[in-house]
Amino acid sequence: MKKTAIENIEITLLLDAIFERYGYDFRHYSRASIERRVRHFLSKSECDSISGMIPKLLHDESFFDIFVRDFSITVTDMFRDPFVYQSIRKNVVPILKTHPFVKVWHAGCATGEEAYSLAIILKEEGIYDKTTLFATDFNDGALDAAKKGIYALENAKKFTANYQAAGGTTSFSEYYHARYEAMALNQSLGKNITFANHNLVTDTIFGEMHLIMCRNVLIYFEKALQNRVLNLFSDSLVNGGILCLGTKESLMFSTISKLFAPMDENARLYQKKVL
């Protein structure tokens, strides 16, 4: 048997072991990214094979903690895809304004850049004070970073350009102060954000939301799991609520496509129909 085929078996066993032992279910993630991350973790560990990591993961909880924190961190920018935020201003904000209070769920917030971006948009549009923004991720390491809202200063130039392209109404420097090599976002931006642990694969619906943002999370899932999560979003939205996906993700071929109408297909904004 080829080495790559044996490695495939090892990874399947490793994912099964993690699920049985800790309940984290990576079995239906897109496999290629998982394999890359497992190989990367192996190269940094002291183990000499993927199957060799299994006993350690089963018996050593602190080793698993390191694994899961290292394993799943994605990297995004503030105002990634500025045109999406522009479209949110133009198409979504007017709808949110009609509600006495606004509930937003940012699912898979990673280290928080895009949750704070949305907070800035809502602030500039005058609706942040009546908004509760739930930003969730299953990775506690990412959530810790998100709560702090401190990013590498080398990002400031890119974030500023994105902010301007997203239609920012003031100067981006109003929202952070630079300290040493870091940019710290104003604490006030996090005032109405609740960062919480939620696992899209194993946890259930999350309140009656007016807007759900989940960008570049579904690309990590196999088709069946994508559908499960999209149904979770559909069930978590009020009628007329809005779903925002990543620019390479779509509702088009999912089981919930009929329940939604495209609001801005380019920005991947969909509105749940009133039935």
Binding site: S30, V75, N216, I219, Y220
Partner: peptide
């Protein structure tokens, strides 16, 4: 392995 694409923002 099924000869489809995946994307990531790792």
């Amino acid at each position: 392995r099924d000869e489809t694409f995946s994307l990531s923002i790792d």
